[in-house]
Amino acid sequence: MNEIGQGRTAGCYRFELELQAYMEGEDAPFVPAHARGCVFCRVILEDLEALRAAALALPLEEPSPSVWSYVHAQLQAAGAFAEKVSFWDGFRQLGLLRRPIPVAAFACMVVLGCLLTAPQDYPELDMTSQVSALPARSAVRSMAFLGEGAALEQVVRELEVTFRARESSLAPDLKATYENSLISLDASIRECSDSLQREPENSLAHDYLLAAYSQKAEVLSSALEFDEGR
């Protein structure tokens, strides 16, 4: 066995490389096989599996309305609505979240400028839609929470990993229903993201994108409640 680091072997590095795929339900037999023979890696694997089980056992709670404001602020601060910047690239530039204070200060200046110069009449004010389309007001409300970040997209991703790991235990017709709904929601997420790349000020696409993520989280949470025989 080649020893590369302190107590770490080439197998350990391969374990790390394939661990994510294994946790996402992909076929990676090397991971459990290596964990059986390596104490260090076995502990890592057991910790991750315990975290996943604990997450599943958590009570399902509806996120507070401010969650959507967090997401909006996070997306806005990450440049998701800027021109010529892809939504995912902007989202990945969440290095901004590591420096919340200067970002918040800059954002407050931007908001103040918007408030002073933007027109006062917003027809959407009369809307009874749950998600506000007013960037200025939602930005003011959410700036205070910038940095905490709902990380809704991360939550959805983790829920989907868990769902994929357990979907084989669902009844076929139940699984098909969930799959169809996820396909529909993923299509809407893609289209809205594309729209926002082309039209960063498209409030309708913004609202639908947030709604799609929220609905996807609800669908995945619902799916995780069901196992064969429950």
């Binding site: 009449d121 917003y122 039209e199 000020e201 498209n202 409030s203």
Partner: peptide, 9 residues
């Protein structure tokens, strides 16, 4: 309607 951001809507 007051001026709204450019949109294809």
């Amino acid at each position: 309607q007051a001026a709204t951001p450019l949109s294809s809507a």
